[in-house]
Design a protein around this nucleic acid. Structure first.
Lengths: 400, 400
DNA sequence: GAGTAGGTCGGAAAGTTTCCTACTCGAGGT
DNA sequence: ACCTCGAGTAGGAAACTTTCCGACCTACTC
């Protein structure tokens, strides 16, 4: 249903063809007309006309000439970088980070600040301040941003605005979204941080060609970013992937199998003093600390257990360790695989470490923001998208 | 990827429009031209031309006239029932059933026989014999069948041919598919029976407008048919929904939480004599037998547990009780809801009884076979489907 | 007579083919 | 070492084809 064209006038054909040209140019980078002609199957006359029109409308621009071939130089075309600006934000527990990117994914500016602890208004103010800082450095205004995506450690409803079950964030409902929008009047989308990490994994990491995978991420809680058929699966109310509460033989129902708190508790039980963070425990384990290693092993066992449960439900092709787990994959992967083998999971389970360098949540947020900003700019130019030219390219699902 | 048109010549426009007309006629039943014109947004000239062509190609036919309006009678059009025949088969534990339907879903013939117990060849022979019987009664030949879908109590790989982990069926790998095809040379697809029940639920039952739901079915084992975004989710190797092995606090890892065997074992523990089937136990419970009621309650508790686990992973909008559970929903639903409430599942869970009358697996098989046969016939006439006009209508997923 | 179904014709829109020009590289001759 | 010419390529213009649409017309029924 929704935006699908039923049938249409001839103009529809131009939309389809323009979209095809645009997608090819977008995907393959700067491209000469002959390549576009070959890739789309259109005649060169049509390609030429379409490109002229796309350039006139500002979404495509010339980008030098290709002189590698013999014959006259071919004009190269690329997506106009400035046709869509996008802002990605990662609201973490310690820091709030923001990045401003253009339509081709180039980073224009970055900024970060310490995470406010208490009030929603402070968090929103931090976000808008970072946005303004980025815009300033990039020489534009925040109003030029076509889409902002903000990653939060919480369950976000499918409207992309309502926040539930926030970890460390106020449970503000729609408060955060509304507070941000007051000072940053651009299209805004909140998204669960683990989901964004999964998007990053799909776009920049190890899952470029994997249609079905699950990213297991450790923040305060344990979360799963689930990608099925190349699209993010959010669940009916955005609660899919809250696997931290999956029942485990060794824990009571309704309590967390795994999460920062659980790891801390295990550390206490193992006799580790102080209140080390998971990251610090993994660090000690890497140094050979026996008690820390025990905690790591217990953690690995629980991850294996969670993965096995998830696999029985949706059988993804691949599991990926991200978040704090990703950084400790060297310690965890082998142990997880051993536990999986020992418990004789009914299905073979592949599990690997994240392949995303840097802040995956931030990169995922920026990618999604860029994708949506660009999609909107493209749709304005070539008309509503009649169909998915690139199925793997639209994981936005049902978010309006 | 796949069948998505990138761009095309003018002919593409005809394909799109013809497809739109076809879909409207298909969905809304016999329809006059003016309605088709309104529904598609095309001009009446184009609709007339397109219909002429579709009739000439045999997928649409005239179906009387509509004289309810004043003015001249409007010619009605419908999908030609004979443009695609489809065979649905349900290989159950006791019976093998088959039904032959035409392109508009009308039942042409039905047949059933006792399920062979041992050899793959016998099962295949039963299927082909039923197919021949149906074809004979309908006055055609088996060769005229455009698609056969066979439901089996087993995990079926995404090729729709390879069988793994069969319950009560030989583990034949591709043996069954190949044996059937030897005598029934038509496009064949094997599919997990619970998945087919889910398809039936979506098409004829309680989930017509639910994009994400999970059907819990009890056969020999416990299986889940998972529909996400209106499409069946099969998993990487067809193993999604094998939730019978989900870990449960009260059972060892690697053993079944729930299934016919588990219920039988509980019945024995409860002191019930003989070896009653689950159905018989539910029957006794309905009669007030205390021991049977205890088994029912334990079953309800396990179902609640499994549903809660599934919900934490994918958060569907709805759970549906099918199979033997569906028939006993009166006993189970209240108890399941009570257990869900008591265990304080983190998410609200809606669970209802199946709304499909009769053999859901058979109806799902017939629907899927009809859908695929029709899709193939349509594609041959209007050219490859350029895009999904009806997203909810194509749950065939990745099966070639 | 008003309203509706269906048909026909000419125009408009879009894409393709064909032909043409201009440009560059490289091979071979001088 | 320089020149010439052929092959291959990029870009553009005109004529043609396909397809859809709007307008007009006829026929039918209440």
């Amino acid at each position: 249903m929704s935006g699908n064209y039923l049938a249409g006038p001839q103009g529809l054909l131009w939309s389809i063809n323009a979209r095809a040209v645009l997608d090819v140019v977008d995907r393959e980078g700067p491209l000469g007309r002959p390549e576009i002609t070959r890739a789309t199957g259109l005649s060169k006359t049509t390609v030429a006309q379409t490109l002229r029109e796309l350039v006139a409308r500002g979404v495509v621009e010339e980008a030098g000439a290709d002189t590698t071939r013999r014959g006259p130089a071919a004009t190269l075309y690329r997506v106009a970088p400035r046709c869509a600006l996008a802002l990605g934000v990662d609201i973490g527990h310690l820091r709030v980070r923001a990045v401003l990117v253009d339509a081709v994914g180039e980073t224009l500016a970055q900024a970060e600040t310490e995470a406010p602890r208490r009030r929603v208004a402070d968090t929103a103010a931090a976000v808008t301040a970072l946005a303004a800082e980025c815009a300033g450095r990039a020489g534009t205004e925040t109003g030029a941003i076509g889409q902002a995506v903000v990653g939060v450690p919480a369950v976000v409803a499918r409207d992309g605005r309502t926040v539930r079950r926030a970890y460390g964030l106020p449970q503000g409902g729609r408060g955060l979204a509304e507070a941000i929008e007051r000072d940053l009047p651009v299209p805004l989308l909140l998204e669960n941080d683990v989901n964004l990490a999964a998007v990053a994994e799909q776009r920049f990491g190890a899952c470029a060609d994997v249609a079905d995978f699950v990213l297991l991420g450790l923040g305060v809680g344990l979360g799963a970013g689930i990608v099925l058929g190349g699209r993010l699966h959010r669940g009916f109310a955005g609660g899919a992937g809250e696997v931290g509460f999956l029942p485990h033989p060794a824990t009571e129902l309704g309590t967390e199998v795994l999460g920062a708190r659980r790891i801390a508790e295990q550390a206490r039980q193992a006799g580790i003093e102080g209140r080390p963070s998971p990251r610090e425990i993994f660090e000690s384990a890497r140094g050979g600390d026996e008690r820390a290693l025990a905690v790591v092993d217990a953690t690995a066992r629980r991850i294996a257990h969670v993965a096995a449960s998830i696999a029985l439900v949706i059988e993804p092709e691949l599991f990926v360790l991200g978040g704090a787990f990703g950084a400790s994959a060297d310690l965890l992967l082998g142990r997880i695989r051993r536990h999986l083998a020992r418990d004789a999971a009914p299905l073979p389970i592949r599990i690997i470490a994240s392949g995303v360098p840097g802040d995956a949540v931030l990169r995922g947020a920026a990618w999604l923001a860029r994708h949506r900003a660009r999609e909107r700019a493209f749709a304005a130019v070539v008309g509503g998208r009649p169909y998915d030219t690139d199925p793997a390219g639209s994981e936005e699902g049902d978010i309006a």
